[in-house]
Simulated scan of single mutants.
Amino acid sequence: MNWQDYIVSKDQVLLGKPTIKDTRISVKLVLELLSAGWTKKQILESYPTVTAESLRAVFVYLKESLIDPRNHLRL
Results as ranks from 00 to 15, higher is better:
21 K>T: 04
51 T>P: 03
30 V>Q: 06
58 V>D: 12
68 D>F: 10
5 D>Y: 02
75 L>D: 03
9 S>M: 02
60 V>F: 01
13 V>P: 02
75 L>S: 03
11 D>L: 09
12 Q>Y: 04
64 E>T: 10
12 Q>G: 03
61 Y>P: 00
70 R>V: 02
73 L>N: 08
48 P>I: 07
6 Y>E: 07
20 I>Q: 10
65 S>R: 06
60 V>I: 12
47 Y>G: 03
22 D>S: 15
69 P>C: 01
73 L>A: 13
10 K>H: 11
42 Q>G: 14
41 K>A: 13
1 M>Y: 09
14 L>V: 04
4 Q>W: 09
22 D>W: 14
39 T>N: 12
65 S>P: 00
65 S>I: 03
55 L>Q: 09
53 E>Q: 13
54 S>K: 02
23 T>W: 09
47 Y>A: 01
2 N>D: 11
26 S>P: 11
68 D>L: 07
63 K>R: 14
23 T>D: 11
63 K>F: 01
4 Q>R: 15
6 Y>T: 08
51 T>G: 04
7 I>T: 11
71 N>R: 14
60 V>H: 14
51 T>E: 00
4 Q>A: 14
62 L>W: 06
39 T>F: 08
57 A>W: 09
18 P>Y: 15
53 E>Y: 00
18 P>Q: 12
6 Y>G: 03
65 S>H: 03
49 T>K: 15
15 L>S: 09
38 W>M: 13
24 R>F: 12
21 K>S: 06
23 T>I: 09
35 S>V: 07
19 T>V: 15
40 K>H: 10
8 V>H: 01
17 K>L: 13
69 P>W: 03
29 L>M: 14
50 V>M: 10
51 T>S: 04
21 K>L: 09
60 V>W: 02
50 V>L: 13
50 V>W: 15
12 Q>I: 09
52 A>E: 13
10 K>R: 13
16 G>R: 08
64 E>Q: 05
66 L>R: 01
1 M>Q: 06
6 Y>R: 06
58 V>N: 07
23 T>E: 08
53 E>P: 00
30 V>F: 11
61 Y>Q: 02
25 I>W: 01
43 I>C: 02
18 P>K: 12
72 H>I: 08
74 R>D: 11
47 Y>C: 13
40 K>M: 14
14 L>Y: 05
12 Q>H: 14
67 I>H: 02
30 V>S: 09
58 V>S: 08
6 Y>P: 05
37 G>K: 12
47 Y>S: 05
